[in-house]
């Protein structure tokens, strides 16, 4: 995927020179390995900052909210689905955007690499499917599939759903994966086990709200956790408050989440809070046959009524 970089720079430069867009949203190299950061390019000569490799997991749709300029944006499969959601929710207009599609083969999980190596990571390079990690202790090689983000390894929408241009030819979609295996595992537990499981899962949470901030869906001017009159949820690390926060955060993403993994990626303590949003995604799929962000013409499951909507939970 790192071969995309040159084409991207060219595309960004051309769009800016032709004044088709006022800014291009992409990635530049971060200050540390595996930490590419989003960047906004406004001048054609700055386009050379742009890079692309397997560390571009941040969801760029997050940077579109309420912008008024004409924007060029690089979009992986999940980014493009979030862009669709943004357009449906009137957070940005379709004619403002030039979506530059980037077929994606998955992003690497920096935690998996950090866990499998010793010492400070000095450099991470990739060549096709091989990731080479240079640490203070030495060099180690990984197959990309081993260190991929979990959501990428079960992704079934790798190619952008909307695009005005494409950086490369579409990649084959994965068809033989079961995206909801982990949700099914929890469904199989009884109530006690589930309660205990989530106690363990959420225990390390420090309430930094990085998951909320990284999420392109979380754009409310005042988030429910910041409201104080009434205060829906306490601000401390009380186990019930943490649980309420994660419950409501997930629930606000119901029918909108694209499982881009930005929340889990941003979490400083590595909580897999995607389990909750995935459960909702699974329910949406089963109850309403709905997957978020696939089409500009369909209203989301939870904001439309259909006569055949399930109602067996109502007595």
């Amino acid at each position: 995927m790192s071969t995309y970089t040159d084409t991207m720079r060219e595309t960004a430069r051309r769009l800016l020179q032709e004044c088709k867009v006022e800014l291009v949203i992409g990635f530049r190299r971060g200050s540390r390995p595996m930490m590419n950061e989003p960047c906004l390019v406004r001048k054609p000569e700055d386009a050379d900052q742009l890079v692309w490799d397997s560390n571009c997991g941040i969801n760029l749709a997050n940077y579109l909210t309420n912008r008024k300029e004409k924007i060029g944006i690089f979009a992986k499969g999940c980014d493009s689905r979030n862009i669709v959601t943004h357009i449906l929710e009137n957070k940005v207009q379709r004619d403002q955007l030039t979506v530059i599609g980037v077929p994606c083969l998955g992003m690497i999980d920096k935690r998996k690499i950090a866990a499998a190596t010793e010492g400070e990571i000095l450099e991470v390079t990739e060549n096709g499917d091989t990731i080479t990690v240079k640490t203070a202790a030495g060099e180690k090689q990984f197959a990309k599939a081993e260190v991929m983000q979990q959501n990428c390894s079960v992704c079934t929408h790798r190619n952008p759903v909307i695009h005005d241009e494409m950086i490369a030819d579409p990649v084959p979609e994965q068809t033989d994966v079961d995206p909801y295996a982990d949700v099914a595992a929890i469904d199989a537990m009884d109530l006690e086990e589930r309660w205990a499981y989530f106690d363990d899962l959420l225990d390390p949470c420090i309430r930094c709200y990085a998951c909320r901030n990284a999420c392109p869906l979380c754009y409310c001017p005042t988030c429910f956790v910041d409201e104080s009159k009434p205060q829906w949820v306490g601000k401390g690390q009380d186990a019930m408050d943490v649980r309420t926060f994660h419950f409501l955060r997930a629930y606000h993403c119901a029918g909108r989440c694209t499982d881009c993994g930005a929340c889990e990626r941003a979490c400083p303590v590595g909580i897999n809070m995607r389990l909750l949003t995935k459960k909702l995604n699974k329910d949406c799929k089963e109850l309403y046959d709905w997957e978020a962000g696939l089409s500009l013409d369909k209203r989301p499951a939870l904001d439309s009524y259909q006569a055949n909507d399930p109602e067996n939970f109502i007595k």
Binding site: D187, W195, R243, F247, A250, Y251, K279, L280, L302, F313
Partner: peptide, 11 residues
């Protein structure tokens, strides 16, 4: 859906 998620968390 809300009920489902509550149950998922063990309520």
């Amino acid at each position: 859906m809300m009920k489902n998620l509550l149950e998922f968390m063990g309520v």
